[in-house]
Design a binder for these strands. Structure first.
Lengths: 339, 339
DNA sequence: TTGAAAGCGCTAACAA
DNA sequence: TTGTTAGCGCTTTCAA
């Protein structure tokens, strides 16, 4: 391992000088020396020791990506393409900006805190944690913190978040459904918190504005795992005549439903219309293709990284709570039932 | 930030003692002192500084996960569920064993090397790199190195690899096809190196053993991106009458094909039989459901982590090149065409 | 323009 | 059983 000391020794200069050259404190060093040092660094293939550097300064050039990942085998096999793309983009951005990514899957605030302190990470991006978890992190950690897709009840907007206009977008696709003559629309999600709550609200707002009564039992909570999903869909199936359209909070569930109906001999969209949300691979890889709202995970990831970096550099962030837009993609899973 | 020194000071013992307690060098410390130190650590919420620790010893408790990730937006949107699950499992295992995961997406040996040295990582797991890249890493890096799904031409088995019995498994599913009366079987993959080469070989062996001539033009190289796939499938479509079955090197392509054929009015399996490989979400999320070979990404990930850890601990590894098995899953995409 | 020296927090050899 | 001390590689202040 080549060290600064070695380089200094070979060149008969001090470590300080070498360090200065490395960090581009070029005004303090003569052009000559700079050249010599640079050459030597190249020649000896010097690679800095980040552990030493992190120790000396109090920062590490490391960004922690906290994520709630499906950790139980078999369960939770919803290999969410959204997460997947996001991780890829974030790693990429982080690296491009000269930082490193520590991936850490946990939802326990104290564990996360430990990790952050133990490694001296410069900032954290948190993905898929709920509001309570995010809030705890925020309380405990004194470092730059950016959340993705988190909704905080208390509209204390001191959280830096990158999200989506979930409510507005859900409203838009519901309005599309209404525009196609649908009035009896069910909403399906695996919970009603955070992102899904917002989508649900959007759905309700659309109905209300069109004077369509929102039935209590037009919400279905999708059960856990394949068995849970099927159980829920069985319920829907029994009451299928009550609805003309189904709004799923995510493409995965919508796509699963389309296949479920296929197995039951129910035609989409002839017998029932279906819309999803996200426009991921499932939407395109289903027949009929899903009508859905397209969001851009890459943009989310890039924005999140940009935000932590601003925070790290101490810049003031004008908009703390960024909400990206999504776009209605009309495909083949909705029928026009206006006469 | 609480340091060992502080704890030592408050207890009026030396840092060494504290360090010893922390590392369980308990035989050198009196039970009394141990208790006191433990209490203080708890009380002060001491969290070790890994940078300092890494610097002092020459190891970091960090494992690098090198991966070739789809970095270009839009392109490469094959959000491979396999990769996704693997990353999750590896992070989980690594963490359970008290290590940390640095995620690094690159295929350039020198960049990887730099990362490894700069952070002093204890070991590396490499995912999705080709043989040449792996070999370079192996040459340059002196640290424990485990590859996933790599095939090295030179049967120099000094590489630690965790793979699949690709050839054998591909042969098995081909034999199943043959058993169902198929003789005119095409093989489709996006390349013929590494894993896919082995699968192709398995396919060929099965045919040869059953005295079925292997036609040169029964291999289709699938093009890049959605456009590339469709272009390839158009070719297949034109020659569809030449085949009774299609063997895709992965579920993603098989699933895409099923949908493609649906759009063209070709029925699977009535008009053409289709098999995939992997048994991931695509296989189950397609109608008809895909007949395929089921592999277990979680097992792969766990095994890989176990191997690096053995290497790190200096244990001798009995089997360097582990090849896991896969299982034939018969579903609805193959027709029995024996009369 | 350059260098000496102290210190970041922790470990480990050695001494007491 | 406990403590002293040097040092890991780098940064940074301050002096030369």
């Amino acid at each position: 391992m080549v060290t600064i000391k070695q380089i200094a020794a070979e060149l008969d200069v001090s470590p300080t000088t070498v360090s200065n050259v490395i960090h581009g404190n070029t005004k303090e060093v003569s052009p000559q020396t700079i050249q010599r040092v640079r050459k030597k660094i190249e020649e000896l293939q010097y690679i800095p020791n980040m552990n030493a550097r992190s120790l000396a300064r109090s920062s590490s050039k490391m960004i922690g990506l906290i994520i709630r990942y499906p950790t139980m085998e078999g369960k939770n096999v919803v290999q969410d393409p959204f997460n997947s793309e996001l991780i890829g983009v974030i790693e990429n951005e982080v690296r491009k900006l000269g930082y490193f990514l520590m991936l850490y899957a946990s939802d326990k605030a104290d564990e996360i805190q430990k990790m952050a302190i133990t490694w001296n990470v410069d900032g954290i991006i948190s993905l898929g944690l709920n509001a309570a978890e995010c809030r705890k992190m925020k309380e405990n950690l004194k470092i730059p913190l950016v959340f993705i897709d988190c909704y905080f009840q208390d509209d204390d907007e001191s959280y830096t978040n990158v999200g989506l206009k979930d409510r507005e977008c859900a409203k838009r696709i519901t309005e599309y459904l209404i525009g196609m003559g649908h009035k009896k629309i069910a909403f399906l999600a695996d919970n009603l918190v955070g992102v899904d709550y917002e989508r649900w609200q959007g759905y309700r707002e659309a109905l209300e504005e069109h004077r369509i009564p929102v039935q209590k039992d037009s919400f279905f909570q999708i059960g856990f795992g394949t068995a849970g999903i099927i159980e829920t869909y069985d319920k829907v199936f029994r009451r299928i005549s009550e609805f003309t359209a189904l709004f799923f909070a995510s493409d995965y569930y919508a796509s699963f439903a389309v296949n479920y109906f296929y197995d039951k001999g129910i035609r989409v969209p002839e017998d029932i219309s279906v819309v999803g949300f996200d426009d991921n691979i499932f939407a395109r890889n289903t027949r009929p293709r899903l009508t859905t709202m397209r969001q851009n995970p890459s943009e989310k990831g890039r924005t999140a990284v940009a935000q932590v970096l601003r925070l790290i550099k101490g810049e003031r962030i004008p908009v703390l709570n960024i909400r990206l837009d999504a776009e209605l993609v009309i495909r083949d899973s909705v029928m026009d039932i206006r006469k």
